[in-house]
Amino acid sequence: MGESAPGLISELKLAVPWGHIAAKAWGSHQAAPVLCLHGWLDNANSFDRLIPLLPKDFHYVAVDFGGHGLSSHYSPGFPYYNQNFVSEVRRVAAALKWNRFSLLCHSFGGTVGGMFSCIFPEMVDKLILLEASPLVVDTNETDNLLTYKRRAIEHVLQVEAAGKPAQVVSPEEMLQGFLKNNSHVGEECGKHLLQRGATQVATGVRLNRDRRIAWPEHCFDFISRELFMQYIKNLQAHVLLIKATEGYYAVRRVNDTDRELKVFVTSSLKSVLKERFQYLEVPGNHYVHMNQPQLVAGVISSFLQSKEGTPAPV
């Protein structure tokens, strides 16, 4: 870590009705706040390599979403829906007594942070989307939406009926399984996420995450293009969208026929937000913020430090 790096100052446990939301904090409490939201099935360690490269005059808090990392699992009987995660952001802000802050979001964290920024526009100063769309548009998914809703309910019932504890495996087996499901993470970063995402027990390690969490599609709020346009009109934040050249679609889809949708999202944000929107492509994959954080740290730093109304230099 360089001298300018904000030091990790604390692990936090923020009380919620079902237990606690775990988080880790860097920098001074007096500094401008930045809330960091991780991707699907990841955890707060997702930001460990990026935050030390960012300006030290900010207070960074990275949370584990409910059911992830070191955070409590939801109460029995309750599923994990997008709106619940959006609500968690509001709860965290209340617990930290933050009225206005910036959001640094990766992947699924971006759809949560994006929706939060539309629902509570006055609370969000800057919204940084790393390999994320602020909302999920349903262009090619219309036929599947009811199937996803059905599977979401059935999956929770199946997990509850089985009543099995999390599987215990060897650390190596755990890592290989993790990397198989997250081809973009890489071994070193995979181990780092598992430090917070798994717990050592007598016979091996087990995943911390709630087994009721299945696929992101089960909990997304898919919206139409019309609604997308309507929602983003509510945004007051300055938005920075960073896309990796070998990013999300290389993880989730074999054939990316959906570039037109990416163009729709970016061009819509540009047309509505005008000078409040910045878009940047960087080389790298879906986990570029972990694998090569130096590729995104500069533009994020400039964006965080830029004054209202002045687009940050790229």
Rank of each mutant, 00 (worst) to 15 (best):
P171W: 01
L241W: 13
E122P: 00
S268G: 08
F47M: 04
P171I: 07
E154K: 12
P76R: 04
K243N: 11
P216R: 09
A31F: 00
P121M: 10
E246G: 02
K126N: 12
Y60I: 02
G66M: 05
L135H: 11
T139Y: 09
L273N: 06
N208V: 08
G67Y: 02
K126L: 12
I119A: 15
S87Q: 09
H59W: 09
C36P: 01
E11F: 07
K233V: 03
P165I: 03
R253Y: 10
L146W: 10
A162P: 01
G66S: 15
N82Y: 12
V156K: 05
L157P: 00
K126S: 11
Q158I: 12
K97Q: 15
P293G: 08
K56N: 12
L273R: 05
S102Q: 07
V254N: 09
P171M: 04
P121H: 05
I153L: 14
F108T: 04
H238C: 05
S28V: 11
N45D: 13
E187L: 11
S107A: 12
N291C: 02
K191E: 08
Q230K: 15
E246L: 04
A25D: 03
A94Y: 06
P313K: 13
V169K: 07
K24R: 14
E160S: 13
L104V: 07
Y248F: 15
W26A: 02
S75L: 15
G69S: 09
E226L: 03
E160D: 15
Q278A: 09
V124A: 01
Y248N: 11
S107T: 03
L179K: 11
F264Y: 11
V263L: 14
W26Y: 12
V314N: 13
I51G: 01
A166P: 08
D125V: 13
R212H: 08
V314A: 13
R49W: 01
M115D: 07
G190L: 03
S133G: 13
A162H: 05
N140E: 09
N182A: 14
V265R: 02
N45W: 07
S4N: 14
A23D: 10
P76A: 10
I21L: 13
G177W: 02
A95N: 14
L240R: 01
K164A: 15
A23Q: 02
A95Y: 06
L175Y: 01
M290N: 02
K97E: 15
G298H: 05
L241N: 13
A202F: 07
E88W: 08
R209D: 01
S301D: 14
P171H: 04
P121N: 11
